[in-house]
Write a protein that binds this DNA or RNA. Structure first.
Length: 511
DNA sequence: GCCGTTTTCGGCCCGACTGTTTTCAGTCG
């Protein structure tokens, strides 16, 4: 088992504890241990063998035991043992971050598939549509034996107070999440999958269209067997003479009309993603060394990665002085030959209170990637903030506006800003907007991303990773992009290593 | 969950800056 796998499991455990509303320092302990493991310079198995786990920063007796268990068995029984009593309503999660929802379903899915009488399981509902937060999880289950499946579901030790309505089960998981299970016989699986995935209006509209075209009643009526036996959702959309509409689009946001007009976007896909343009290292406030971050990017198969540490004003995050920045550029050059990946030197430069940029233009001119972000004075008036951000985008060296609204899901509202004006100036100046993929940022969100695309603005999907594990958050940003109807051509970092620099530097060459 | 002791539980990253300053809690990643 690789260090990375062990770290991922610890990270997952932390996320699940967080779903349960556990002590945040306990959660942080798991995250800290995950970082310690992933940044080790030796194999974790060696450390286990030589009983040196507790020498790691942030690893005590309890976590040492758990890490040992993971290394030796590949599992973590603590997750199984988590209290099998339902949480009090006050501790229930009402909104769950997409990242947590996906982590949770990854944990639960294999358990569901293994239940007697169950043959197929899929996440449906808001999580399958990849909404930024979800209120609960829904699963569609194909069953070979309804009675047996119902019984085994009811007997699952982590599922509490199951309430059945026909073959639908409402329950609460020990981890503090409300779940709805839709049980159907195998012949009806695809239909149920579809019906429980799209928003209500999407599903109703589609059902009407199919009724008109074919006379068929596509909506499954509880307790009634259905004549339609579909093998895939493609077949279902084909009944309406339409191509498959991706789950992320099924919000009745014009996707049906677009499909009818043959103008459905060919959504950007993980395979299109060529590299991360916003990551941090321990030169500023990142947890891992540049080498570790670069190696993790190589492991993900990227063509390039941009090192974009904080600028001098952001003291709290150990922002780089101009001298340190220049040393970092030299270090990147020295590292380049050792790796089969392009390492771009960049910066996440602060947009100061008045919209000026926290580094001189002659310094920015020597960097490959310049992201400008607001990290201070969030409470400016709407007019001031708008002017501030727009002024920053006027800078010919600012290629990307980082996390444009500054929101933290569940923690901090976005700052006041006139987004229409930001989009106008971004388009005018040729500045890209970032979809920041941090689980609690997802900033810009799906709807702004769609407006950006309509305005002809390129969008960069970045992770803002502060550790190797966070590079994987790219999938969340990608989900937002897809929800925003973005295609490969709309996304900056789908360009190859050969092309990306020229594209990034188009703006400065105009000046 | 870890840590560091005032050895048994309380606090828990970092530090400069802000403010219709009065003396320190809140803010930023």
């Amino acid at each position: 088992m690789r260090n990375r796998d062990v770290a991922e499991m610890l990270e997952r455990a932390g996320r699940i504890l967080s779903l349960r509303g556990e002590n945040r320092y306990r959660i942080r302990a798991y995250q800290k241990a995950a970082r310690a493991v992933v940044s080790l310079d030796e194999g974790i198995d060696v450390v286990v063998k030589e009983k040196r786990l507790q020498q790691l920063e942030g690893v005590g007796s309890a976590l040492a035991e758990k890490i040992q268990e993971i290394v030796e068995t590949g599992t973590l029984s603590m997750l199984e043992r988590i209290e099998t009593v339902s949480l009090p309503p006050t501790k229930m999660n009402r909104t769950i971050l997409l990242a947590s929802a996906l982590t949770f379903s990854t944990e639960l899915l294999p358990q569901l598939v293994a239940l007697p009488g169950v043959t197929q399981v899929q996440v449906v509902g808001e999580a399958r549509r990849r909404r930024e937060t979800v209120t609960g999880l829904e699963f569609a289950l194909a069953v070979s034996d309804m009675a047996e499946a119902k019984e085994s579901l009811g007997a699952h030790k982590h599922l509490h107070s199951c309430r059945w309505e026909d073959n639908k089960c409402f329950t609460v998981h020990s981890f503090g999440i409300e779940i709805t299970f839709h049980l159907v016989v195998e012949e009806c699986f695809v239909q149920t999958l579809w019906q429980t995935t799209g928003s209500v209006t999407h599903v109703q509209k589609m059902a009407m269209i199919i009724k008109e075209k074919t006379g068929q009643q596509i909506m499954k009526v509880p307790g009634q067997s259905n004549a339609l036996q579909l093998l895939s959702e493609e077949e279902l959309y084909a009944l309406a003479n339409l191509p498959l509409i991706a789950p992320e689009l099924r919000e009745d946001g014009g996707e049906i009309e677009a499909a009818q007009a043959g103008q459905l976007p060919l959504l950007v896909d993980a395979a299109d993603y060529k590299g991360d343009l916003h990551i941090h290292t321990d030169w500023s406030d990142g947890a891992a060394s540049m080498k570790k971050m670069v190696e993790a990017a190589v492991e993900l198969g990227y063509e390039y990665v941009a090192i974009t540490d904080h600028s001098r004003s952001l003291k709290i995050a150990k922002g780089l002085s101009l001298e340190r920045l220049s040393q970092q550029q030299a270090f990147i050059k020295s590292l380049q030959d050792k790796y089969n990946i392009r390492i771009f030197s960049g910066i996440e430069v602060d947009i100061l209170d008045d919209g000026s940029i926290d580094a001189p233009n002659e310094v920015l001119a020597n960097l490959d990637v310049v992201i400008a972000s607001v990290h201070s004075a969030f409470r400016q008036s709407r007019a001031k903030m708008t002017t501030r951000i727009c002024r920053a985008m006027q800078n010919p060296y600012v290629q990307i506006l980082g996390h444009a609204t500054g929101r933290l899901l569940g923690k901090r509202e976005p700052y006041e800003v006139d987004m229409a004006e930001v989009l106008r100036v971004a388009a005018m100046t040729g500045t890209s907007l970032e979809i920041n993929s941090s689980p609690d940022r997802l900033d810009i969100n799906d709807s702004v991303a769609r407006r950006a695309k309509d305005a002809g603005i390129a969008v960069a999907i970045n992770t803002d990773a502060h550790s190797q594990l966070e590079l994987a958050n790219m999938l969340l940003g990608l989900a937002m992009a897809r929800r925003g109807w973005l295609e490969k051509k709309d996304v900056l970092n789908t360009s190859s290593a050969q092309d990306i620099l020229a594209i990034l530097q188009k703006k400065r060459r105009k000046h």
